[in-house]
Design a protein around this nucleic acid. Sequence first.
RNA 1: GCCGGGAUAGCUCAGGUAGUAGAGCGCCAGACUGAAAAUCUGGGCGUGGGGAGUGCAAGUCUCUCUCCCGGCA
Length: 286
Amino acid sequence: MKKLIVIVGPTASGKSRLALRLAKRCKGEIISCDAMQVYRGVPILTNQPLPEDQKKIPHHLIGFLPLHKEFSAAEFSQRAKSVIQDIARRRKVPILVGGSGFYLKALLGGKHAPVKADPTIRKKYSRLVKEKGNAYLYERLRAIDPRRAKKIHPNDTYRLIRALEIYEVTGRKPSEFAEGGGGFSALFRIQKIGLRHPRKVLYQRIDRRVEKMIRNDVVAEVKRLLRKRLSFTAKRIIGLQELFSYLKGESSLEEAITHIQRLTRQYAKRQETWFRKEKGIRWVRV
RNA sequence: GCCGGGAUAGCUCAGGUAGUAGAGCGCCAGACUGAAAAUCUGGGCGUGGGGAGUGCAAGUCUCUCUCCCGGCA
């Protein structure tokens, strides 16, 4: 059976470096599993691997998508599957590297409702929430699919809307699309490596990384995007809004930096929560 | 030096008529069914600046000291 290496861990834990080392040693190719590194034009802001490293080792799913395009776990899963199989066919070792736990789950974890996000439907429900509150949406979901409703908190508008969207598009209960064993992950012998640091060290690394981003002139990178149309997904890149507000004179650079550092630390914490519960990871303390 | 205004959770601050304290943010923990770097949930005993006084009882009233911020000199 073919081997698939998966490297997980919070942001700034050193995943890319480890991946590069492994790839050199075992003729591997790297596939990024990162919701934001897919975008073109933001290599500094999203910490994409350096061009020189990408030249030495083939990297995939990095910096290929224009910022006005939406992206999703679904699309990631599709693309990653074909890239990984292609690598394996060429007798190289695919090395999946990333911090987007949900994307990893979409790829390895199994089935999901085959329903694309529909902006019109979502807009409709967003308006409903504003008018009648999320309790109304929750009751509506409970009426059609109590099983799914039970797993969603009434305040979690995001998931409520998604569940109702699935129902509206397919006419079937969202809970029918239950998780199943993924056919894809069965094709490989998966070896998961997790990177871990003491919390204090990780936070220091994050703070330093943000400072380095500034030194590498991330401000210039972001300035070019000021007047561009950005997709819903791309708008959520950490640091984008903060640097925009600096560029528009609404905050100082100092404030923006502190803010970005904090958001990144909070993100890293959530990533740790996600991966901590994941089974079969060999944890490496760096 | 004088006149005001402050000093309460890590930070910013709320706290009629005195009855041992809350909110936002942070922080910690958790969830996560194809927009996830998102979204959501749970967690607050803190020598109430120091000292003295009045009261059954003081963050809350009185006095005093220390420090901070305005204004006037």
